[in-house]
């Protein structure tokens, strides 16, 4: 890797393609949700009295397309499911092989001590994000790890479980999730968990200096001239 870069090309490419896919999948998903605004647990459910959640109707400006059209929303959703899942697979392979996962995302046992987690939270509240020796501090590693390891793959796994055509080959996973309607509920919950991450993530980027941060995620340039690059950090 180029020693002067903060983010590898693979990370940068994944990050922006993923952003486009997630935005389109989320907004077309909200259009799909408007078709039947009730979520159930188990295998079946079709009437409001069986629902554990009555979902509000999402306004047109929050959906793709920007009017209610289940067929077109499904077209968008089905199309962008492919690049979304494929770049995620690519990113996992790249992270494992180029060491990014082991070096920057994986948390270490010593970071799980209460005192150091409390320190980390306090530093965050003071808006001091560059306080840890590695590339990312503990809370960043934890949240990126959950996004890469649980939420993003969870969207694919639960999305597949909702598809009737996957019935014959994917039964074990559908059962593991507690049935098709449970999988649909998890798909919805995970989508909103991703949205929550997205809001906090973008907020922190804005607070940490959006121009440098975003430039660095596009070109790979270090945050500032004196900041250690990934390569130097790896040696500490």
């Amino acid at each position: 890797m180029d020693k002067t870069k903060r983010h590898r090309l693979s990370t940068r490419a994944w990050h922006w393609i993923n952003l486009l896919c997630v935005v389109i999948l989320f907004m077309s998903g909200l259009n799909i949700s408007n078709a039947h605004r009730f979520l159930y647990w188990g295998d079946y459910g079709f009437q409001p009295s069986e629902a554990w959640l009555v979902v509000p109707r999402f306004p047109a400006w929050a959906t793709i397309p920007d009017f209610y059209d289940l067929a077109q929303a499904r077209d968008w959703h089905n199309l962008f499911a492919w690049p979304f899942a494929l770049v995620l697979l690519f990113m996992w392979a790249a992270m494992i092989f180029n060491g990014h996962f082991w070096r920057d995302i994986r948390t270490r046992r010593r970071e799980w001590r209460l005192a150091s987690i409390a320190e980390d939270i306090k530093a965050h509240l003071r808006l001091n994000f560059g306080h840890s020796p590695g590339k990312y501090n503990f809370l960043q590693k934890l949240s990126y790890g959950i996004v890469f390891g649980v939420l993003l793959p969870g969207m694919v796994l639960t999305g597949l479980a909702i598809s009737p055509g996957m019935g014959p080959s994917y039964l074990w996973m559908i059962e593991l999730m507690g049935g098709r309607q449970s999988a649909r509920s998890f798909h919805f919950i995970f989508a909103w968990a991703l949205f929550a991450f997205f809001v906090v993530h973008v907020l922190l980027v804005i607070l940490a200096g959006p121009y440098r941060q975003i430039r660095s995620m596009i070109t790979g340039a270090p945050l500032d001239k004196d900041a250690p690059t990934a390569q130097q950090e790896a040696r500490t």
Binding site: I32, A35, Y40, Y44, F46, R74, R180, R184
Partner: peptide, 8 residues
């Protein structure tokens, strides 16, 4: 499974 999302 209905396209709208429900199942029976």
């Amino acid at each position: 499974d209905c396209v709208e999302g429900w199942s029976a």
